[in-house]
Design a protein around this nucleic acid. Structure first.
Lengths: 170, 170
DNA sequence: CATTTAGTTCATTTTTTCTTGAACTTTGTG
DNA sequence: CACAAAGTTCAAGAAAAAATGAACTAAATG
């Protein structure tokens, strides 16, 4: 049972510094094209020195239950957050993953790689049809080739990023 | 499906292939977090073997004048498109820039680098205040340091990408 | 079991972003 | 100059994305 009496006042407010840290997480999320709430939730976990429950996040940050639930699921999926077992407590407790390489890799895997692959498939189809369709103008064929080249370059980016960001994790 | 008669002027209808190429440009734009219309407009320029006017884009792709004007401005700004002088014609004529490195560099410059810099400024402020505020918990200070580290790694990404994508342009 | 608590789902509402089009400015033309 | 064509701007509408919260399922507790 939550602490009782005087407690109906909101659980400990966020300090200035905590607010700023969460703010940065929100900006980061938006930079990456993720919804603001993911940034808030990640921030909530990031600033906590010990594993947090969904309820704490909801209380301290004023997020709806639905957002919190869905947001945590998404963050788990990209590996930004993981849940940690706490004895004698039925609730899930979350801990932030803080390696930038790890975070970026998760986002890549879930968001970017599928799109790059899809692009590859489409360009592949196109260039296959391109060959047998002899009435195409030469110019458009060159454009299709250009896209194939883009696709090849895009494929190289993922491993390269991994290399740059993979160092210095703890 | 043979093209049939329609030997007349190219003025209108997009071919299947052209539609697919524009479609890919739209997907690419959306992947990069840019509005669909930018993809369409870029696509319109991309598939044209000769410089296109705004009017042609509006006509062939059914885009509003406002979108076309703003979209072309944005594409010029990121260097995805440039206008080319045509004698005896008052209108602007646009040509697509097709080097992936060039395109990505432009988007970086306009969209990502400012955000990364802003992030850097904020983290800098934070860590400066962090030092003099002696009442901060140790844990939060570690988190601020973590963000500084992220910032440093992010700074490295830009030149690395440039290197991967900068080769093989024509 | 009945009850309480943790967490999920999803239709609805809210917010944000994109697109449109009409009014406007600018520039070339006779 | 008056006119027309090219291009810009921005308020308002449309569309898309995100957040909410009530109704739900599942799982522990006694």
């Amino acid at each position: 049972m939550p602490n009782g009496d005087t407690a109906e006042v909101s659980a400990n407010r966020l300090s200035e510094l905590e607010i700023e840290l969460v703010d940065l997480c929100v900006r980061l999320a938006q930079f990456l094209g993720l919804p603001k709430s993911l940034g808030e939730i990640y921030g909530a976990v990031f600033i906590s020195p010990r594993p947090v429950t969904m309820e704490e996040i909801i209380e301290r940050h004023g997020i709806s239950k639905g957002s919190a639930s869905q947001g945590l699921r998404a963050l788990k999926m990209i590996g930004a957050v993981r849940s940690q077992y706490i004895p004698n407590d039925r609730r899930d407790h979350y801990v932030a993953e803080t390696g930038l390489g790890h975070l970026v890799a998760g986002i890549m895997r879930n968001r970017y790689e599928p799109a790059i692959d899809d692009f590859g498939v489409r360009v592949g189809d196109l260039s296959r049809n391109n060959r047998k369709a002899e009435h195409n103008e030469e110019f458009l064929r060159q454009r299709v080739e250009k896209l194939e080249h883009w696709q090849q370059q895009a494929q190289q980016i993922v491993p390269t990023l991994r290399q740059v960001l993979g160092r210095g994790e703890q």
